[in-house]
Nucleic acid binder design. Structure first.
Lengths: 147, 147
DNA sequence: CTTCTGAGTTGGTAAATGCAACTTAGTGAT
DNA sequence: ATCACTAAGTTGCATTTACCAACTCAGAAG
């Protein structure tokens, strides 16, 4: 199972948890409501050992939680649900999807649309200031925190 | 070199370009101003064959551009600079960094801060509606585009 | 006490990664 | 002209990771 590197850069640490192959796709399915091992397997075509490893990493770092569930007349089984930390990754997934839609488009157009819930109004991911107002990329700076 | 999958999901296509190991870290350095092969090598400790492959993929998909440069008294060499498409990945990188800062923190605090350029005002990544107003995650929905 | 099903593990092969050494191409000094 | 210098790679080999198929495990129903 992956471990996070001892790196001062939080991007590197985030990638330690999320940066392996399949992880983002597993999170995409989780976001779409999938919770079961066999479900992830079928939807992604992922090998069971790799899936087991990735889910283990996500559970270890509290991105997902392993919870038992029981269907009528069946024994208790494991389900994997997103924690609040995992739900916050929606922003990352949407940012990636948005970039793919724009820069790797298909003639059919996007397969998924990001909307304000319950409406037809478009939503997207972007930079925001502390007043909740969108900022253009050009007016954002990433500066070293001089500790 | 990686190729994008023929997948209707633009997240999967984006990961075809960006989802290999090292790619996000290379983009982090590019965003921080690095342009040279040897510079990426030193800053990341990446193997030269892997770096060559990743830069090739990024150039192929127009995330970076290979441009010649010439220093006084040296021969012409190759530099790698972000294209506009590559610059737009700042949103993705910042979203990942922000998540790492929050969910995989270190006692020292974050090593980088996201600010409104030229000010001390904090900036962050989030969902925005078509009026440029921030939206809470809970009010965003991802819906299949019924084509 | 056998079958069914979801959730995994195990074992062998193919692919990706890492490391060291080598190649290539021009420049400036000898 | 040729020699050393340097950035930008390529090549060959050992290690790690991923993939695939087959198998195990646990409990409920028949």
């Amino acid at each position: 199972m992956a471990r996070i590197p001892d790196d001062p850069c939080s991007l590197a640490r985030a990638l330690g948890v999320l940066g392996e192959r399949w992880t983002f796709l597993i999170l995409r399915e989780a976001n779409a409501g999938e919770t079961r091992f066999a479900g992830f397997r079928e939807r992604l075509g992922i090998a069971p050992d790799v899936l087991s490893d990735r889910l283990g990493t996500l559970v270890f770092y509290s991105v997902m939680e392993k919870v038992p569930y029981q269907e009528a007349g069946a024994r208790s089984r494991a389900a994997y649900v997103l924690t609040p930390a995992g739900q916050e990754l929606t922003v990352v997934l949407s940012a990636l999807r948005q970039w793919g839609d724009k820069h790797l488009p298909r003639p059919e157009g996007p397969s998924m649309l990001c909307r304000v819930a319950g409406t037809k109004r478009a939503a997207h991911v972007g930079f925001v200031d502390n007043q909740g107002r969108e900022l253009p990329i050009s007016s954002v700076a990433l500066i070293p925190s001089s500790v």
